[in-house]
Simulated assay, not measured.
Amino acid sequence: MKILCWNTNESVWAHWLKVAPSENTLLRVLSLDELKALIEVNNSEQIEYCFIYLSDQDFSAMVEYSVDIRREFPNLKIIVFPNRPSQSAALRMLSQGINGQCSPYIGAKQLKMVLSVIDMGEIWSGKAFINNLIAANPMQADTDEIESEDSLNTLSKKEIEVAFHIAKGLNNKQIASEMLISDRTVKSHITNIFRKTNTKDRLGLALLVQKSNSTH
């Protein structure tokens, strides 16, 4: 599998070369134009992933470039690697479909886990990250996009349990392990939960559960 890497930092690039799975080929670009050109050149040999390093110097611009790339290449799996934490930037990118956010100096084992989770259709965020997003954006739960917390009452006992695990930041495998059920069953529950609560993603559901907890 080819991984397209937009990275202008030599130290981070050297680290990615060390921690990337051996079966992957990393292709480096230094600009947005290079990135788009390389995707077009490699059309016959599909590039599945794009890693984007968000430097301090051009942080805000890189956030918007990442969102633009997501819109232009909807089938590309995009992981961003910010050099500094920003909850607002993370919320902006994840809400627009970015597949995950990681530390630029992520370890080899964790990177392999991240790729595995995203390959299963999940967003990589982690428990602490989701909790921080919820804490940093309490007003989000009051927007019209979030269904009333009464919709949680339509869930079965098992679906409620899954919903609360999602609100804690657990991925599908972790939920399956906690509930002693299969990954397929977890996915089925999540599909039903999204439909019944009119939520579109895990963050929206987590905010809904948070809102419910705050009113009870």
Rank of each mutant, 00 (worst) to 15 (best):
residue 172 N to A: 02
residue 110 Q to Y: 12
residue 17 L to N: 13
residue 156 S to V: 08
residue 174 Q to D: 02
residue 42 N to K: 06
residue 80 V to M: 10
residue 64 E to L: 13
residue 16 W to G: 05
residue 103 S to T: 07
residue 9 N to A: 11
residue 44 S to V: 09
residue 83 N to E: 15
residue 59 F to V: 11
residue 105 Y to H: 12
residue 154 T to A: 15
residue 198 N to K: 13
residue 204 G to H: 12
residue 165 H to Q: 13
residue 66 S to Q: 11
residue 88 S to W: 05
residue 152 L to W: 03
residue 144 D to Y: 08
residue 3 I to R: 05
residue 117 V to Y: 03
residue 213 N to T: 04
residue 155 L to C: 08
residue 60 S to L: 12
residue 11 S to G: 14
residue 37 A to Q: 10
residue 75 N to I: 02
residue 155 L to H: 10
residue 70 R to S: 09
residue 26 L to W: 03
residue 95 S to D: 08
residue 152 L to D: 04
residue 23 E to T: 08
residue 157 K to I: 06
residue 75 N to V: 05
residue 55 S to R: 07
residue 20 A to R: 01
residue 170 L to W: 00
residue 156 S to E: 03
residue 167 A to P: 02
residue 104 P to L: 04
residue 100 G to H: 06
residue 85 P to D: 12
residue 78 I to T: 11
residue 150 D to C: 00
residue 29 V to P: 00
residue 92 R to H: 15
residue 42 N to W: 00
residue 192 N to V: 03
residue 52 I to H: 07
residue 171 N to V: 03
residue 216 H to K: 09
residue 134 I to W: 02
residue 162 V to H: 06
residue 130 I to S: 00
residue 66 S to V: 02
residue 97 G to K: 04
residue 175 I to D: 00
residue 135 A to W: 03
residue 69 I to K: 03
residue 84 R to V: 13
residue 66 S to L: 04
residue 167 A to H: 02
residue 68 D to W: 07
residue 84 R to F: 09
residue 102 C to N: 12
residue 144 D to H: 09
residue 141 A to M: 05
residue 123 I to E: 13
residue 141 A to F: 02
residue 131 N to L: 06
residue 62 M to W: 01
residue 41 V to H: 07
residue 170 L to Y: 06
residue 134 I to G: 01
residue 11 S to R: 13
residue 193 I to P: 05
residue 36 K to Q: 04
residue 139 M to V: 09
residue 161 E to C: 01
residue 214 S to K: 15
residue 68 D to P: 03
residue 42 N to P: 01
residue 123 I to G: 00
residue 61 A to H: 07
residue 139 M to D: 14
residue 201 D to C: 14
residue 174 Q to M: 10
residue 183 D to V: 03
residue 31 S to D: 07
residue 170 L to M: 07
residue 100 G to S: 10
residue 83 N to R: 09
residue 18 K to M: 12
residue 45 E to K: 02
residue 125 S to V: 09
residue 159 E to V: 04
residue 5 C to F: 15
residue 54 L to G: 08
residue 28 R to A: 01
residue 79 I to T: 10
residue 115 L to A: 11
residue 12 V to Q: 08
residue 152 L to F: 07
residue 78 I to M: 06
residue 190 I to K: 07
residue 11 S to Y: 08
residue 88 S to P: 01
residue 208 L to N: 05
residue 70 R to K: 14
residue 40 E to I: 01
residue 178 E to T: 09
residue 173 K to E: 06
residue 139 M to L: 15
residue 145 E to A: 12
residue 155 L to S: 09
residue 154 T to R: 15
residue 37 A to E: 14
residue 126 G to F: 03
residue 32 L to E: 09
residue 72 E to V: 07
residue 36 K to G: 00
residue 14 A to H: 12
residue 213 N to D: 01
residue 142 D to C: 09
residue 164 F to V: 02
residue 137 N to E: 04
residue 181 I to E: 02
residue 124 W to Q: 05
residue 155 L to D: 07
residue 151 S to R: 13
residue 203 L to E: 05
residue 139 M to Q: 11
residue 36 K to C: 01
residue 189 H to G: 01
residue 174 Q to A: 13
residue 216 H to V: 08
residue 162 V to C: 05
residue 118 I to M: 11
residue 164 F to K: 13
residue 147 E to W: 04
residue 78 I to D: 06
residue 145 E to P: 00
residue 135 A to D: 05
residue 125 S to G: 15
residue 14 A to S: 14
residue 174 Q to P: 02
residue 130 I to L: 02
residue 88 S to E: 14
residue 158 K to G: 01
residue 61 A to R: 14
residue 84 R to E: 15
residue 127 K to T: 05
